[in-house]
C-alpha cells in the first residue's frame, strides 16, 4: 500500500535520508529498527508530509503522494502517532481524541463509533476524559496519542517509538495493543529501539543506519540474524 522509491531528505545540507526504498503491504506490521539519530523520525515525517523529500517518490495505493501536505495525507489515511506524542496538553483527553477525527468532522456518527472503540481499547481514558492531557502519566499520554491517531481512521498507522520512556509492564501492554490494532485490519509501520519486543509482533522489518536502509527481512530472519541480535537485541 505504501511504497518509497529512492527517497532523499535533507536538513539544510545534511542528508538525513539517503536513497531509501521500502514497501509496506496491506495488513502488514512493519518494524523499522534503528538507533537514535539513524533517521527513523525523519523517514516518518517525510511520509507524513511534514518534510518534503529532496528526491525520490512516495506512492500510496499506486497514487503518487510525494510532497503532499500533511492534511492531505491524513485525509488519504496516513496517520502518524509521533515521537514525544505531540498532544494538546491543556485540552481535555476527550478534546484531544475528537480533534484526532478532524478530517472526519462532518461524520458525527462515525466519530462516535470510533470514539467508543478507542475508549473500549483504553478504558482508563474514559475515566480521565475531562482531565487535561498534559496532566496524565506517560503511559496514559501515549494511550491518548495512539487513540488520537486511531480517531483519524488510519489505513496506515505510523507509530514512532511508542514505548519510549514507559515502564516495562506498560511497554508490554503497548505492544499488545499495537498487535490488536494490526489484527483489526490497520496496516502498521512501527519505529522502535526496543527491537526484541517489536520484532516479536512484526511481519517484516527494516534496519536503518545513518539514513540508509541497510537490512530487510521477515520476522524470523531478523530475529535469527546475528548482526541484528548484536546491534539491537544485545544477546
Amino acid at each position: 500500500m505504501l511504497k518509497l522509491e529512492n527517497v532523499d531528505a535533507k536538513y539544510d545540507s545534511f542528508k538525513a535520508l539517503d536513497n531509501v526504498s521500502m514497501t509496506v503491504g496491506q495488513g502488514e506490521l512493519v518494524v523499522l529498527l534503528g538507533a537514535n539519530g539513524a533517521g527513523k523520525t525523519t523517514l516518518f515525517n517525510t511520509i507524513s508530509g511534514l518534510l518534503k523529500p529532496s528526491a525520490g517518490s512516495v506512492t500510496l495505493n499506486g497514487e503518487d503522494v510525494t510532497g503532499r501536505r500533511p492534511s492531505a495525507l491524513v485525509q488519504a489515511g496516513v496517520v502518524q502517532c509521533p515521537e514525544g506524542r505531540k498532544l494538546f496538553p491543556e485540552m481535555s483527553v476527550m478534546k484531544n481524541l475528537v480533534l484526532g477525527a478532524y478530517v472526519h468532522r462532518r461524520d458525527k456518527a462515525g466519530i462516535k463509533k470510533t470514539l467508543d472503540h478507542v475508549l473500549e481499547m483504553f478504558p482508563i481514558l474514559e475515566e480521565k476524559k475531562n482531565q487535561a492531557a498534559g496532566s496524565l502519566s506517560g503511559g496514559q499520554q501515549q494511550m491518548v496519542a495512539i487513540g488520537r491517531a486511531l480517531m483519524g481512521r488510519p489505513k496506515l498507522l505510523m507509530l514512532d517509538e511508542p514505548s519510549l520512556g514507559l515502564a516495562p509492564l506498560v511497554v508490554k501492554q503497548m505492544f499488545e495493543t499495537i498487535q490488536t490494532i494490526n489484527r483489526e485490519g490497520t496496516t502498521v509501520l512501527l519505529a522502535e529501539q526496543n527491537a526484541f519486543a517489536a520484532l516479536k509482533i512484526a511481519t517484516r522489518a527494516y534496519v536503518i543506519e545513518n539514513g540508509r536502509l541497510v537490512m530487510e527481512g521477515d520476522r524470523d530472519t531478523m530475529l535469527g540474524n546475528e548482526a541484528v541480535r548484536k546491534a539491537y537485541i544485545g544477546a
Binding site: 507524513s48 511534514l50 501536505r69 500533511p70 492534511s71 491524513v74 485525509q75 496517520v79 502518524q80 509521533p82 506524542r85 505531540k86 498532544l87 494538546f88 496538553p89 491543556e90 485540552m91 478534546k95 475528537v98 480533534l99 484526532g100 478532524y102 478530517v103 488520537r148 491517531a149 480517531m151 483519524g152
Partner: peptide, 20 residues
C-alpha cells in the same frame, strides 16, 4: 479548537490533518 490546537502543539495539529 483547531486554532487552540495550533497554539498548543503545531506539529500535533498538522498530524491530525489541520490545515495551517
Amino acid at each position: 479548537a483547531t486554532i487552540i490546537a495550533m497554539a498548543q502543539n503545531r506539529e500535533g495539529a498538522f498530524l491530525v490533518g489541520i490545515d495551517a
